[in-house]
Design a protein around this nucleic acid. Sequence first.
DNA 1: CCCTGAATGTTACTCGCTAACATTCAGCCG
DNA 2: CGGCTGAATGTTAGCGAGTAACATTCAGGG
Lengths: 186, 186
Amino acid sequence: MVHLSSPRARRTRARILDAALDLFERQGYEPTTVAQVADAAGVTPMTFFRHFPTKDAVLVTDPYDPLIADVVAAQPAVLPPFERVRLGMRAALGEIDPDEDATARRRVALVAANPALRAAVVAATAATEDAIVGRLVHDGVARLDARVAAAACLGACTAALLEPPDDGESLGAVVTRALDLLGQAS
Amino acid sequence: MVHLSSPRARRTRARILDAALDLFERQGYEPTTVAQVADAAGVTPMTFFRHFPTKDAVLVTDPYDPLIADVVAAQPAVLPPFERVRLGMRAALGEIDPDEDATARRRVALVAANPALRAAVVAATAATEDAIVGRLVHDGVARLDARVAAAACLGACTAALLEPPDDGESLGAVVTRALDLLGQAS
DNA sequence: CCCTGAATGTTACTCGCTAACATTCAGCCG
DNA sequence: CGGCTGAATGTTAGCGAGTAACATTCAGGG
């Protein structure tokens, strides 16, 4: 992993990412080797792994954000844990994603098409899930209750983001819809 | 993959499984190589892969059961999709697991300890999730709604099963508790 | 007793990924 | 302008998961 992206390193990383997306879209994720990606980027496989720890890291980045756990914990403690997580995540995730560039859409489409990558997304959200669980447990919520609530809400959001989007709808709006569906009034 | 387990193949498979659980528990999942497992089972690595398609398949088996989708689809169609999936899975999963042998507990403990294996579990439940979504969509439910409901409930159940269990509580009881927590009255 | 097919072994290979060490590049200072 | 320094990249070698093609052994029925 390159320490702090110097101007040169940033360009190299961008070239690798472009080459990867291009090849993944043209010949599929699994059939594409990182050697091919590195080659197309004019770079060595070793350099690929210095910029992305794994092959799937090009598409799946850890969205861990301590802010989410904060907002969840800030919901009224009198609510049942599931409601607390649901409303907290709604508040935290409904607004973000201002940088909803075309690259993000390409990544999502590629991940959605591959079961192994979908699993990688779950692994990447583990940190966020643990953060939420930790905060709730610290507030006296039973560990099982906290885990179930966090897993259900994160699973719902992930699934919603990977569904083929009604184009025009923002990613934030999709998340909001997903979490609303988990409320009883839906 | 061995076609149909002859008596000999069944014994070999059992030896591999025993050796794998033993080594995984003693030195961890990742540090253990399939060569070591095969060796301890008195077998070649090639034979290992003929009985288990991947290393993690020793611990993670696809629990796909068309019955679950059936029971979900049988819930009253007037209910919101999330309630339908929740109650359906409660009915389908609350009772099963009669073969709750010690081996199952060992597997669960090993999976719970490893993030990569947890991810493998969600990949393995993809078939079940798709089956539920397919049934609901066939009933006229919007695809996003169906996906979100199925993902939330499956995520909750998986998370609950991987939490360190109050020993004495059956796996079926844990699932029931998890799904009840997603109801509003909790 | 052989004969047949299933189960296993052997060999060789690809791909993801890592470590240790050498090399080139970009900018700052004299 | 020219060398210095550290970051970025290259080179080589290797491990482990997984696969393919082909050879070999085993168990049971004619």
